[in-house]
């Protein structure tokens, strides 16, 4: 196997992995704060991808520009979902939360199926076939742009949590629920904001993803699983962990596709998950205990 080829595949996987990482970041934020596992995460991502397809089709803007309005729509969706439906379930047992979100996921997938049909959709950009050449590396432009956008979005999220008062309040809720209430934070509203932010992350990631793959409704559950795996591998609640694990999974997928078989990609991903759960259950960058 020529080393150039392997290097090319690894870089391609790394760049796609950053987009995966952004999607998983959304899940991690929601779980870290609201303590609810969003089992409809991948379905929200395909919904965002369809929104982007429509928007790009109507206006002709770049999918990466579409990430802003689509992220906004997903934010509102997530906010409303948390406020109207999920908030009542925050203190209920895990399995009822699970069923609630599975029901949401079923509805989302099948509304997409009703509206857009089962066939794959994609967007066309004029730089789709261009690439950068760096020494022996030939890297698709779409991947570079998508990955750059993902890093930018993740950076904005980090800054929001570190620098702004709202971001700090959200972190306070995650650290100490009771304490946050005592100091007078509106936890309900902050939870809804958090869910909205998580949804916006996955919405933006969906737009970037659209540069790399087609979208079909049935991919939703697979994306949900992928996001989970990345979050667990990176460490639940660790934001940098989610990005790093996205890269690890992206690269291992790409390598497995090259060295074993394209259809065995996710098998390697699941194997990584099982190993991490067994030997480092707090995740690669998570804190123990």
């Amino acid at each position: 196997m020529p080393i150039d080829l392997v290097a090319n595949v690894v870089v391609a996987g790394l760049l796609a992995g950053l987009v995966y990482g952004l999607a998983a970041l959304g899940l991690s934020v929601i779980f870290g704060v609201v303590r609810v596992v969003n089992f409809a995460h991948g379905e929200m991502m395909t919904a965002a991808m369809y929104l982007a397809v429509v928007l790009v089709g109507l206006t002709g803007i770049d999918p990466l520009v579409a990430a802003l309005p689509v992220g906004g729509v997903l934010f509102l969706f997530g906010y409303a979902l948390q406020r109207g439906l999920i908030n009542a379930f925050v203190t209920r047992p895990e399995h009822t939360q699970f069923i609630l979100l599975v029901a949401v996921a079923i509805i989302l997938v099948n509304v997409q199926l009703m509206v857009f049909g089962p066939n794959a959709r994609n967007v066309q950009v004029d730089y789709a076939l261009d690439s950068f050449e760096i020494g022996p590396l030939i890297i698709d432009k779409v991947r570079v742009y998508a990955a750059a956008a993902a890093v930018l979005a993740a950076g904005a999220l980090f800054a929001f949590f570190r620098r702004t008062l709202v971001g700090k309040s959200i972190r306070a809720c995650a650290d100490n629920y009771l304490g946050a209430q005592v100091v007078g934070l509106n936890v309900k509203r902050l939870y809804a904001l958090t869910f909205g932010l998580g949804a916006a992350c996955v919405g933006a990631a969906g737009c970037m993803m659209l540069l790399l793959v087609d979208v079909t409704p049935v991919q939703g559950p697979a994306y949900t699983l992928l996001a989970f795996i990345i979050v667990i591998v990176g460490g639940m609640g660790s934001l940098t962990g989610a990005l790093a694990a996205g890269v690890v999974i992206g690269m291992s997928e790409a390598l497995a596709g090259l060295l074993i078989a394209p259809s065995a990609k996710s098998m390697v991903t699941f194997a990584i998950l099982i190993l991490v759960l067994l030997f480092r259950p707090q995740g690669l960058l998570g804190r123990a205990g």
Binding site: A88, I99, V104, I107, V109, N110, Q112, L113, G117
Partner: peptide, 18 residues
């Protein structure tokens, strides 16, 4: 239309769990 049945199913599930 494919999906109509599952949407209804999902809504029923939602109603029961709520």
């Amino acid at each position: 239309t494919p999906g109509v049945k599952q949407v209804f199913y999902g809504v029923c599930l939602l109603v029961v769990i709520v």
